[in-house]
């Protein structure tokens, strides 16, 4: 903590021993600003696709339906057989055959409430609620085919699964981009710091001759780059957030793009960008300074 205070507050006199480094200063500011800006969008993308994957995954609701189409005289037996199979299958929380009333209620919107169900050859529906870990749909299907010829398993996941997968890979891509952006920023700041150190080797020589320790010289450079990275990142994040906020609001249609904003606890992420960027600058400039000072000795 003390060390951090020392880094932030610094020593006005100590700071001035290193001459202003115009070009590398602007490069650091710009690079960290641009990187922070991009990070905000990558973050927004990751968080939004994460939320989407989560919601879609939940909505799959872990439920499936088994439809039994059989001649009327076998219906009860096959339904019972299917329920037996389901009871023996791991990964199923519960299974229940719908009653006639429930089935007619389901069909009512299409055929009217007074549908004479018992006179029509209606399939029987079994509602299956998935347990955790989920059941193996392929295995269940095979067993049903063998033991209950009239049964068809319909797990709605079939068409939604790819969407969830896509959302999840989008989220992973977002995080990967953030890592790459971070790496690029560290590389750029390292280069800028190295250029500044090399350009100032005479200053370093003079400082050494009057008895400055390596740590002192390094800190003078590290402080600058850290502060610049922090300021650049803060500006970049502000602009990025402004951009995200200017997107259409989330409530309108609930589509993917409109859900890009930050919500609740996820606000912590963009707020973390400037300190993380500064931390990265601290580490990479520190390493560059140690290397250069070793080389210049």
């Amino acid at each position: 903590m003390n060390a951090i205070m020392k880094l932030v507050m610094g020593d006005a006199q100590a700071d001035r021993v290193v001459p202003p480094t115009g070009f590398t200063a602007r490069l650091t500011l710009f690079a960290s600003g641009a990187m922070a800006f991009l990070t905000v969008f990558a973050l927004a993308l990751s968080l939004a696709s994460g939320r989407l994957a989560h919601r879609w995954g939940e909505e799959l609701a872990r439920s499936a339906t088994i439809r039994i189409s059989a001649p009327a005289d076998q219906m009860a037996a096959q339904t019972e057989a299917a329920l037996t199979v389901l009871r023996q299958t791991p990964g199923i929380a519960s299974a229940r055959a719908l009653t006639d009333e429930e089935q007619s209620a389901l069909l009512a919107p299409w055929f009217g409430a007074d549908l004479p169900l018992d006179t029509l050859p209606m399939p029987r529906l079994i509602e299956v609620v998935e347990g955790y870990p989920p059941f193996d749909a392929q295995g269940l299907r095979l067993r049903l085919a063998a033991e209950v010829p009239g049964a068809t398993l319909d797990d709605h996941t079939r068409w939604r699964k790819p969407l969830v997968d896509a959302a999840q890979s989008l989220r992973r891509l977002g995080w990967l981009s953030i890592l790459l952006i971070g790496g690029a920023m560290a590389a750029m700041i390292t280069l800028a710091a190295q250029a500044a150190l090399a350009a100032n080797h005479q200053v370093i020589e003079v400082l050494r001759l009057v008895g400055a320790r390596d740590g002192y010289i390094a800190l003078a450079f590290v402080r600058r780059f850290t502060i610049r990275a922090f300021i650049g990142a803060a500006v970049g994040v502000s602009l990025g957030l402004l951009g995200v906020m200017l997107l259409p609001s989330a409530s309108d249609e609930g589509g993917f793009l409109t859900g890009l904003g930050f919500q609740g606890a996820s606000w912590i992420w963009p707020i973390l960008i400037p300190p993380l960027g500064a931390g990265m600058a601290l580490l990479s400039t520190g390493a560059a300074a140690r290397r250069t000072l070793r080389r210049l000795s």
Binding site: Q13, R16, L207, V210, Y216
Partner: peptide, 17 residues
């Protein structure tokens, strides 16, 4: 250090220590 005034240069050993 050419970017610092003479007084600061003279005081440099104090500063760095």
């Amino acid at each position: 250090l050419d970017h610092l005034p003479v007084a600061d240069n003279v005081a440099l050993p104090l500063t760095v220590s």
